[in-house]
């Protein structure tokens, strides 16, 4: 059972303010996409409103964090036979029409396509504070050291995934905070092809940034530790790359470790 329609996965935690507009925009501008909202233990009407708008809704019994919500979405995509899926924000900062740019990346053979706020040709409008920019620089540098490739936007939550990538992430997507950076390193180390395309992003239409500052610093340090001590060894990467080169089509099987 395969499904050629792209699946848009929207992790949502108490997003009743912004979600309806996001879903409406998706339905109007990209009617060819299926949509799954993963309500991540929301205590407001997030799941109810999503259900009313006629999209798929997976309701987590308690808050797992964005990584857990995404993993649920990936498992859904795999079980329903979707060939491609896109991670999309519930707060309205992603443009439905830009999804096609990510999907084009998949068609070029990439397993994961990242919509970058900072890639050349991308957003000049996206403003971040100095501290945040520095923190992102450190991450960018660390990722470069770990995977030997320079990504301009390591923490972007606007991404598309191929079927093999979905199968891999359905059971091994990182569940710690700032999952996107770890996921990027994981995918590269596992031998998947990761590509960046420029993507414009807008300001948030509702809801508050998910975390307070001090907590953010703590999570940031935690992520650095995780990145430094974890992630698969070089030998494992080599093995996977070899496997991939030998038999590109059966890549989906090797993800089932």
């Amino acid at each position: 059972m395969t499904n050629r329609r792209p699946l848009v996965i929207i992790p949502a935690y108490n997003e009743e303010e912004s979600l309806p507009a996001v879903l409406k925009e998706l339905a109007e501008q990209t009617p060819g996409y299926d949509v799954l909202v993963v309500s991540d233990g929301s205590t407001d009407r997030t799941a109810e409103l999503a259900r009313q708008s006629g999209v798929h809704v997976a309701t987590l019994p308690f808050n797992l964090g964005i990584g857990g919500a995404l993993r649920t979405g990936f498992a859904f995509a795999v079980r329903r036979g979707y060939e491609r899926a896109v991670q999309f924000d519930a707060d309205g900062q992603h443009d439905p029409l830009a999804v096609q740019d990510l999907l084009d990346g998949l068609d070029r053979g990439a397993d994961m396509v990242i919509g970058s706020r900072f890639a050349e040709g991308g957003a000049v409008t996206y403003e971040v504070s100095t501290i945040r920019r520095r923190a992102m620089r450190v991450l960018q540098w660390l990722v470069k050291v770990l995977v030997r490739h320079r990504f301009t936007d390591t923490s972007s939550g606007f991404r598309a995934f191929s079927r093999p990538m979905l199968e891999y992430f359905a059971h091994s997507y990182p569940v710690e905070y700032m999952d996107s950076v770890e996921a990027l390193v994981q995918a590269c180390n596992a031998g998947f092809r990761v590509e960046e395309v420029p993507a414009n992003m807008r300001g948030r239409t509702g809801g508050a940034p998910s975390t307070r500052k001090l907590k953010l610093v703590y999570y940031y340090v935690r992520l650095l530790v995780v990145l430094l001590v974890s992630t698969t060894s070089r030998s494992q990467r080599a093995r996977r790359t070899a496997q991939r080169d030998g038999d590109a089509e059966s890549d989906s099987e090797s993800g089932q470790a």
């Binding site: 993963v38 997976a58 019994p61 993993r71 649920t72 498992a75 859904f76 079980r79």
Partner: peptide, 10 residues
């Protein structure tokens, strides 16, 4: 378990 629950409930 939570993930499985969400998918089954869906």
């Amino acid at each position: 378990l939570a993930e499985e629950y969400a998918l089954l409930r869906e």
